[in-house]
């Protein structure tokens, strides 16, 4: 009962946030509301037992997306102009689609029922056999990295491809000619500087914890990469992008991103050389369980590297555009 109550309150908050987004014309407020939307949906994911997903949503949806959107409205202007065309037709289209979808939900099995078809076929096998076959407590990591490793390789390649897309649209962030000076960034905010310096090492430590503890608790390469990128984004925002470029330069990121994908794919190739299928980790070491462990650690490292490089690369590309428009 409590779960239902928490769920209802959170869903109500989401509904109000979404309605506010429709009517607001101030894009800054719209982006902030979207950030709140992401955070509240992360809470709902926790309530629905999806801890790994909630972790990712909080770091990615509320963190990186918001920063990128704020960078975009810094370039494109803060207010939406008045809408000229009528919205009656839009409302009708939306209502008809919504009614059709709700009619569709009537045929779905009831929410939360353990006898639903979705829980009958693949999931029991993952839940019962993965501790023996893969040997990790976190089933999500086992499925992500081992059973559906090929799928995850594809996702990693998509993240890499998106980075290439953004870099080819916005241009790579060239190292700025002017030396890094304390004037860049939020120079007046002494308190921010001190606090950022205190917490950035802890954020990076946390990212490493999430990366290597993902087999046992919520976490893994995707979350760790995003958190590590967030630490450097915080550094760049507080001290200026040129300082961050001295730690991890855009050129290095262009090496890291493909390196992660190659690391991932080469684990699969090693398995093939040893006579098994692509991404079969059982043959990597003397026993199957040890092989699974090595394989998962290495491919999570590859995922973390690519996601870190892609997220930071996206931020560098956007911040470079903003700085260039400020100079002009």
């Amino acid at each position: 009962m409590t779960e239902v109550l928490i769920d209802l309150v959170l869903l109500g908050m989401l509904a109000m946030t979404a309605l506010r987004v429709i009517f607001l014309k101030d894009l800054f407020a719209v982006v902030m509301l979207f950030s709140i939307f992401s955070f509240v949906s992360a809470l709902i994911f926790i309530n629905l037992d999806a801890v790994d997903v909630a972790f990712t949503e909080a770091a990615v949806g509320a963190g990186i997306s918001t920063v990128l959107m704020l960078g975009t409205i810094a370039l494109t202007g803060r207010t939406e102009k008045k809408n000229s065309h009528s919205s009656i037709l839009h409302l009708v289209v939306v209502c008809v689609t919504g009614a059709a979808l709700i009619y569709g939900t009537m045929d779905m099995p009831p929410f939360g029922n353990a006898d639903n078809p979705i829980h009958q076929h693949v999931a029991p096998r993952y839940i019962e056999d993965s501790p023996k076959e893969v040997g990790l407590p976190n089933i999500v990591t086992s499925v992500l990295a081992s059973y559906r490793g090929f799928d995850t390789l594809g996702e990693t390649v998509v993240v890499f491809a998106a980075m290439i897309g953004v870099l080819s649209l916005l241009g790579t962030a060239r190292p700025t000619n002017k030396r890094a000076t304390p004037e860049s960034g939020l120079a007046k905010h002494r308190v921010l500087h001190v606090v950022a310096k205190i917490i950035i090492p802890f954020i990076i430590l946390f990212a490493l914890y999430v990366q290597f503890h993902g087999d046992y608790g919520p976490g893994g390469g995707f979350q760790a990469g995003v958190i590590a990128a967030a630490a450097l984004i915080l550094y760049a925002l507080v001290f200026g992008a040129s300082f961050a470029h001295r730690i991890v330069s855009p050129r290095q990121l262009e090496v890291f991103a493909p390196l992660g994908v190659l690391l991932y794919a080469s684990v699969g190739l090693v398995g093939m050389i040893k006579g098994a299928n692509f991404l079969d980790y059982n043959v990597l070491a003397s026993t199957a369980a040890a092989g699974q462990h090595y394989g998962i650690i290495i491919i999570e490292l590859g995922v973390g590297l690519t996601v870190f490089a892609a997220m930071l690369g996206l931020f560098y590309a956007f911040s470079n555009q903003v700085e260039r428009s400020n100079v002009q």
Binding site: A162, M163, L314
Partner: peptide, 20 residues
């Protein structure tokens, strides 16, 4: 766990496509 795996990767891919 299966929807969790699918959505976890979809979120990261989602932010990458949003950036594009």
């Amino acid at each position: 766990p299966l929807p969790h795996v699918l959505i976890l990767t979809a979120i990261v891919v989602g932010v990458a496509t949003t950036a594009v």
